[in-house]
Amino acid sequence: MDIEEFRNYCLSMDKVTEKMPFGKFARRYDSILVFYILDHMFCFVDIDDFTSVTVKSTPDEVDVIRMNHSSVSNPLNQSLRHWIQLNLNGDVSDNEIYSLVRRAYDIIKAKYTPRRKT
């Protein structure tokens, strides 16, 4: 997997947008590319050092991922309960990374999609 393939995958999901918002906080974060659904982050990567993908998850799912894989680490944003960093070229396959990205998208979309009144 390369950064363009990953970016194209993320942008192929309905209504996904991308931004690089963290450079305003510190120059070292200029290369962090964030993917959004409904104006909320669901994953991000460093485009200059594409060695990991950080995804949103649930606390229970984060625990399961950590138990089943050794190539995970703490996310850049240090929110350990709801985010997990998946290291590329480790024991998390590309297909599983794509599935976890899709799961992150689904979590955020479900949380922030307005409910219809009946």
Rank of each mutant, 00 (worst) to 15 (best):
S70K: 13
D91V: 12
S93T: 14
Y36D: 05
Q85L: 11
S73T: 12
V64M: 11
P59N: 13
F44E: 04
D63W: 00
I47M: 01
Q78E: 14
Q85T: 14
L86K: 01
L88I: 12
P75M: 04
N68F: 10
S57D: 10
I47Y: 01
S73A: 12
F42T: 06
I84G: 04
H40A: 06
R81Y: 00
S70E: 13
D46I: 06
Y36N: 10
N87V: 11
N89D: 11
S52M: 03
K56V: 13
H69I: 15
N74V: 15
I37Q: 01
D60V: 02
H82P: 02
H82Y: 14
I47W: 01
Q85S: 15
P59S: 12
S71A: 14
N77E: 05
L76N: 08
M41I: 13
C43M: 13
S52D: 07
S93A: 11
V62T: 08
D48T: 02
F50S: 00
V53W: 14
L76A: 09
F42W: 08
T58F: 03
N74F: 12
T54I: 13
C43H: 13
N77K: 04
N87R: 11
H40C: 05
G90S: 03
W83R: 00
N68K: 15
S57I: 09
N89I: 01
W83N: 03
N77R: 06
Q78T: 13
I47S: 00
H82E: 12
I65T: 07
N77A: 04
D60K: 10
P75W: 02
S73H: 02
S52G: 10
L88M: 13
I65N: 07
V53N: 12
D91S: 12
V45M: 00
N89F: 05
F44S: 02
N87G: 03
D48I: 00
Q78D: 14
L80Y: 02
W83D: 01
D49K: 09
N74T: 15
S79L: 10
C43T: 15
M67N: 12
L38E: 12
K56S: 04
L80T: 08
F42I: 08
D49Y: 09
D46H: 11
V55G: 01
I47P: 00
D46A: 09
L38G: 09
N77V: 07
L76Q: 03
H69W: 15
G90A: 07
V92N: 05
H82A: 07
S79D: 15
V92W: 03
S93D: 09
F35P: 08
F42K: 01
D46K: 10
V55C: 07
S79F: 11
S52F: 08
Q78G: 06
G90V: 06
G90I: 06
V62E: 02
P75L: 04
S70L: 11
L86F: 09
L38V: 08
I65A: 05
N74C: 12
N77M: 11
R66C: 05
S70Q: 13
N74Q: 14
F44M: 13
D49C: 09
D49H: 12
L88H: 08
D46L: 06
T54H: 08
Q85K: 14
M41P: 09
L80S: 03
V92G: 03
V72E: 05
V72F: 07
D91I: 13
N74A: 14
F35Y: 15
V72I: 07
V72K: 04
L88E: 03
R66F: 04
L76T: 08
V45L: 04
I37F: 02
V53F: 15
I37N: 01
I47G: 00
D39Y: 10
